[in-house]
Design a protein around this nucleic acid. Sequence first.
DNA 1: TTGAAAGCGCTACCAT
DNA 2: ATGGTAGCGCTTTCAA
Lengths: 330, 330
Amino acid sequence: MTASDVAAHVGLSRSAVSRAFTEGASIHPDKRQRILAAAKELGYQPNFFARTLSTPAQRKCSNLVAILTSDFSNPYQSYLFEELSTALQLSGKQPMLLNVKQAEDLDQAILRLSGYQVDGVIAVMGSLPAASFSQCLKLSLPLVTMGRADERGRIPSVQTDNYRAGQLAAQHLLEAGLTRLGFVCGRADGQASIERLAGFGDALTEHRGDAPQVLHAGRYGYSAGFEVATRELEVLRRLEGVFCASDALAMGLLDSCREVANLNVPRQLRVIGCDDVPQAAWQGYQLSTVAQPVADMVAAVLSLLEKQWQGLHSELAAVRVAPSLVLRRT
Amino acid sequence: MTASDVAAHVGLSRSAVSRAFTEGASIHPDKRQRILAAAKELGYQPNFFARTLSTPAQRKCSNLVAILTSDFSNPYQSYLFEELSTALQLSGKQPMLLNVKQAEDLDQAILRLSGYQVDGVIAVMGSLPAASFSQCLKLSLPLVTMGRADERGRIPSVQTDNYRAGQLAAQHLLEAGLTRLGFVCGRADGQASIERLAGFGDALTEHRGDAPQVLHAGRYGYSAGFEVATRELEVLRRLEGVFCASDALAMGLLDSCREVANLNVPRQLRVIGCDDVPQAAWQGYQLSTVAQPVADMVAAVLSLLEKQWQGLHSELAAVRVAPSLVLRRT
DNA sequence: TTGAAAGCGCTACCAT
DNA sequence: ATGGTAGCGCTTTCAA
């Protein structure tokens, strides 16, 4: 089905058909109606590829935006992904997905993406090195990363203010009158964990508390939380409250307390997580947590992309969005 | 960056560049090397849009495949989605995502998709009526649905053999010597729930057991499971085992038993779920379940698409893949 | 094996 | 407001 087919069907020119599908083009309303009706009947839709091809370079635009991600099993990632794809569609963009398993593939993958003329790339991969994105820079392909800023500040990024997240967690535990506090770290080299710990620790010392006891889970998942709690049970028994670097860690720890340690939460130990994934609200957990402001983050990402499309490269930055406290049972 | 730019850079023709990127084209190996090297240096990648445009209709192909889905918060969906996108990429296809919130949007959405020249559509939306896909049929856009067959058998589909899933669950509970059994239904009108119940019930009567007591949760999520268990506590107390239409339902029920009913699982009540989502293996749940054969289903989906691309419409069918039992603590 | 040229479906610019 | 036409980047004949 092509524009010519439709044109022939209604007895008008190809140009007329094109205009009927172009917002604000000079065409008689009646004719536009007739053309649109015929198109609907014939199942015609302008070929976006051809359209992009013929549009002048200046405002060429495929409306395709790539989302790069490496892990869906992570509940926070899939939650973020839901919001991201919805927002993208709402603003008229079509999300393309790239599931990147190995960092080495990245340059190659981005090159392929450029073959699809994507308008921009959103990278949701906290653990990937910024160096991997050199190809985007080289192709001057608009890019925004989420969850991790480029060390050299050359890539626009959006992330939670992790330092603030640590402060909030500390504030909550301190207000409960607790003093012996701990922090469960995800990846030891993870920027997020490091910053959360910094905010947490600073807040404690400011309030004349002791520095937190740090437990190393090594990863951010449920199992890691369960395992670290089982392994470090003695440490946990001496604590009054812990801040976990992710909700999944907190939930694993919680279950270990319940089933292995027979440690009552929140009576003997208060637990606060970070992310506010849907499961945190489950009646079985009722986990208090520091909520990542997902909606705000998504809005910030779109705005950063928008700026790049408008050529406002000067105003780009590492955006940090404020998290908030969600208090539940733990 | 266009083929002409690369051609100029190496002092050859556009045609040569095109051939360098075409598998098995007639070109001197040395020249191909030079061109490929130059392309890499310049960050050139053939424009897939233009390529699709110029390729003869017969084997025209964008390598774009759309995935339609309506809910990512569902853990089974995101798990399935992970597998699907990976498999697609592995076979050289690029997944495009369409998050469909409202069924009415569907026709419109599919039309838009056709504008992107997608090679096929995979619909992962159990709860959408088959009628919504008329647009695909009209455009003769290859389509495969997952999780729900078209009543009239006109749309190729892949799903778990839900009847068999019910049988497996029954078999497990009967082998444990239990007789007073129940079934927790998700959506009362959901095909999956109905079939699972049928298999479950038939297996029970075959073994001379009573027909199962049916509890209606109304939805498939965690909260629905928690609520139905709390509401129907008295019924639950009289049962020895329940089969839940989804893992999320089972987990909600489990938590309600633990926290509200003080009912010991598995001693007083055995619970078996359906799906085998990652959370089912969490130490806090250790949920026995009927596993959906996700890898097999994904393979079947790709194979059905492949057949449509080869024009083998005669061999299409509603594929049913066998589930398997995963026994854990409950 | 190679370069020239036609044409894929479309939009944008011409004239009218 | 309308129809004709050039040309977007590419693949593919066709000659050579």
